Amino acid sequence: MTLTLAPDVVPTDTEHGTVLLDERRGRYFKLNATGTFLLRALLDGADHHQAAALLCRRYGIDPARAQADVSALVDALTAAKLARP
Score class of each variant (00 low, 15 high):
Ala53Leu: 11
Asp47Ser: 06
Arg58Pro: 05
Asp47Pro: 07
Gly60Ala: 04
Phe29Gly: 02
Gln50Thr: 14
Gly60Lys: 05
Arg25Phe: 01
Tyr28Gly: 06
Pro11Tyr: 09
Leu31Tyr: 11
Leu55Asp: 03
Leu39Lys: 14
Arg24Gln: 15
Arg25Ala: 08
His16Asp: 15
Glu23His: 10
Thr12Phe: 11
Tyr59Arg: 09
Tyr28Met: 13
Tyr59Thr: 02
Gly60Gln: 05
Val19Glu: 13
Asp22Phe: 07
Leu42Tyr: 06
Leu31Cys: 03
Arg25Asn: 07
Arg25Val: 02
His48Cys: 11
Ala52Arg: 03
Pro11Met: 13
Ala46Met: 08
Thr36Leu: 00
Thr36Ile: 03
Ala51Leu: 01
Leu54Arg: 10
Asp69Ala: 15
Glu23Phe: 07
Leu20Glu: 01
Ala51Thr: 02
Asn32His: 05
Cys56Gln: 12
Gly26Ala: 03
Ala51Ile: 00
Ala46Trp: 01
Arg24Val: 12
Leu54Glu: 05
Arg24Ala: 15
Asn32Tyr: 04
Gly26Lys: 09
Leu38Trp: 02
Asp69Cys: 04
Ile61Gly: 05
Leu20His: 01
Asp22Tyr: 04
Cys56Lys: 03
Thr12Gln: 09
Gly17Met: 00
Ala51Lys: 03
Asp69Gly: 01
Asp62Asn: 10
Leu38Val: 04
Pro11His: 07
Arg57Val: 08
Asn32Glu: 01
Arg24Phe: 12
Ala41Lys: 14
Asp22Gly: 01
Thr34Trp: 08
Ala41Pro: 10
Pro63Val: 06
Thr36His: 06
Thr18His: 05
Tyr59Pro: 00
Gln67Asp: 13
Gln50Trp: 03
His16Trp: 12
His16Ala: 11
Leu42Trp: 03
Tyr28Gln: 10
Tyr28Thr: 10
Leu39Trp: 13
Ala46Val: 05
Ile61Met: 12
Leu31Thr: 07
Ala51Tyr: 00
Phe37Lys: 03
Asp22Trp: 08
Leu55Ile: 04
Gly35Cys: 06
Gln67Cys: 00
Thr34Ile: 14
His48Asn: 15
Tyr28Ile: 05
Ala52Thr: 02
Thr18Ser: 09
Ala33Lys: 13
Asp62Trp: 07
Thr36Tyr: 01
Ala51Asn: 02
Asp62Tyr: 02
Ala66Gln: 04
Arg57Leu: 09
Asp62Lys: 00
Leu38Thr: 00
Leu20Ser: 02
Pro11Glu: 11
Arg58Ile: 00
Leu54Asn: 02
Val19Ala: 06
Asp44Leu: 10
Gly26Gln: 06
Ala52His: 04
Tyr28Asp: 12
Thr12Ile: 14
Ala64Met: 13
Asp22Ser: 03
Gly26Thr: 02
Thr12Gly: 12
Arg25Ser: 08
